[in-house]
Design a protein around this nucleic acid. Structure first.
Lengths: 325, 325
DNA sequence: TGTCGATGAGAAAACCTTTTCTCTTAGACC
DNA sequence: GGTCTAAGAGAAAAGGTTTTCTCATCGACA
């Protein structure tokens, strides 16, 4: 203990924590010695008495990490500066496993839990209400009286529609995922009210193959072809773009395409690279970190659902106002 | 404390931990009460005295999570049953951040650290030797005298080559990433010795575009065309398959293609879906968890590099012996 | 000179376990 | 009947901090 070099153990503690009363000279001396010997207080002992472990848990059922990873990065980014570490617990929709992880976290006295997932309209397979620690739901359905953070899918869809409209599209179709997803319905609704012409929504699965299929449906039938396609996610968009290219339809000259998710690996590798809506999950993660920190420090945080804005990442599949009509 | 219901605090502890001497009847009674009241020992207090926190740290510079996520899943899977939780620390090749995270972990008395990354021939930007806790390197370059786990890329490449040969390919080309990657060189070497005909290795970048480009190079020049292509990763393979399809070359009938990584999102969405080499990173993660657990319990673990075998995931781009020559 | 207040610093309790040591009791053996 | 041993269970220390309380000293004021 650094106290050996100077003073009593209690004075040392107070000096380092900026509490207690002592001469400025003593305080500085202790700090200096502590720095020299590289003294680092034991977090376990500290946590035992202060009831704060500087540790939070992140629970997620998004095994693939597509959504959780950016959220995680944001949380960690926000919290590492405060000395808070993050337990990552991947549960695969397995209530048993979820329970084990939650218990393990509680045993370790986490200061809070962030629940995250891959769908905004599904709860994790474990009840997190009534826990002795604060909980923040980030990109997953939360308890009614909980603190929930989610993307503003309607605003995101408006962004996409606006981009297509600005690019001069007259006839915009929406090719998206299963109607059972709430976010699909929200985006579709926003799309319907945002465009001028008659809306057309095609529901399918979240896969490239569905993008192809949708293009086939649209082009093989008679009548007017769309000149703008808003896709429910980047995988579908990629399928659509590939399908169009294979038919000799130019993107974005003949048909402009906008995706959703900004999943780099898909969006950036598509030919041409996709213009797409980014849900800013990293920012959402930061916000979740900020909130859980506040709550763990006892500050009041208003419960309810907070929608965080999406932004548009313009690549080449739709260039907005740049591209002449 | 559960002792209230029965006996002294020390007897209770001994009863629950299976230590000490007492009548079987007492032991059972304590256990029963503990279960009833849902008693869970405080991990902080326990860690303070036993010097084991049942916590390990996972350090990675693979922000995108392509490699780390499966490794992480494996580690977690292996350890959760032992009550061990995992701190995930994402550092982006930032030595400063790495240092902060390592310090935070040490403060929290982690029982061990697993270092992971995205390249087998690069160290993390922080020196983990001489730490007061055991370290296991998983899918990243480790210290010379450390315990390192990696995939057996040569064996994986042999698997790929064997699949193409079995499919009847006579002229197999290897389209891969930059020569600066050690794994690229290892795979290329294994490819060279595995095939019968004269080898041809094309180096480029890790992108779909390079796959296209390579096909263009191969097909636009005169002379004999390959009938089998072994790609350095799935992205390149996807580019190759797309390039071939656009030229009217059938996969796998005219040219069989094998990828590397088994990155579901790419491999399964390719048309046709890719046959590819899986590095079994989840298994590697499990093994890392097993080792760090052993080491943290004081068991001796032999240092050195352990290569874990890859396996072949057969989809449709190369059907091995099934496809007639 | 005596009392009061402020200031600086240490003693000790508390946090919640585990673990070692000690004590009591009962049974066995001579 | 006395001594020894083993069994069963509790007392207490230890682990490394934080925090409250107490104590000593000194200057000021009456």
């Amino acid at each position: 203990m650094a106290a050996l070099a100077d003073v009593s153990i209690s004075t040392a503690s107070k000096a380092l924590n900026g509490s207690g009363r002592m001469s400025e000279e003593t305080r500085e001396r202790v700090k200096k010695v502590a720095l020299e010997v590289g003294f680092r207080p034991n977090a376990l002992a500290r946590g035992l008495i202060t009831k704060r472990s500087f540790t939070i848990g992140l629970l997620t059922n998004d095994t693939y990490g597509r959504f959780t990873l950016p959220v995680m990065a944001g949380i960690s980014e926000e919290l590492v500066g405060h000395g808070v570490s993050v337990f990552l617990c991947a549960i695969e929709d397995d209530p048993e496993r979820a329970r084990v992880h939650v218990d393990a976290m509680l045993d370790k006295s986490v200061d809070g839990i962030i629940a995250s997932g891959k769908r905004l309209d599904r709860q994790l397979p474990v009840d997190l209400s009534g826990l002795p620690v604060p909980v923040v739901y980030a990109f997953t359905k939360g308890a009614a009286d909980g603190v929930t953070l989610r993307s503003d899918d309607e605003q995101g869809a408006r962004l996409a529609a606006r981009c297509l409209i600005d690019a001069g599209c007259q006839r915009i179709v929406h090719v998206t995922g299963p109607k059972t997803f709430q976010s699909v319905r929200e985006r579709a609704d926003a799309y319907r009210t945002a465009i001028d012409g008659p809306p057309e929504v095609l529901h399918g699965i979240w896969a490239e193959a569905w993008g192809h299929e949708a293009v086939a449906q649209l082009w093989d039938r008679g009548g007017e072809k769309p000149d703008g396609i808003f896709c429910g996610n980047d995988q579908i968009a990629r399928g659509v773009v590939d399908g169009l290219r294979e038919r000799g339809v130019r993107v974005p000259e003949d048909v402009a395409v906008v995706g959703f998710d900004n999943w780099e690996i898909v969006a950036a590798q598509t030919r041409p690279p996709l213009t797409t809506v980014d849900m800013n999950l990293r920012t959402l993660g930061r916000e979740a970190g900020r909130l859980i920190l506040a709550m763990s420090e006892g500050r009041e945080v208003q419960s309810g659902i907070r929608k965080l804005p999406c932004s548009l990442v313009v690549r080449q599949s739709c260039r907005g106002a740049e591209a002449p009509a």
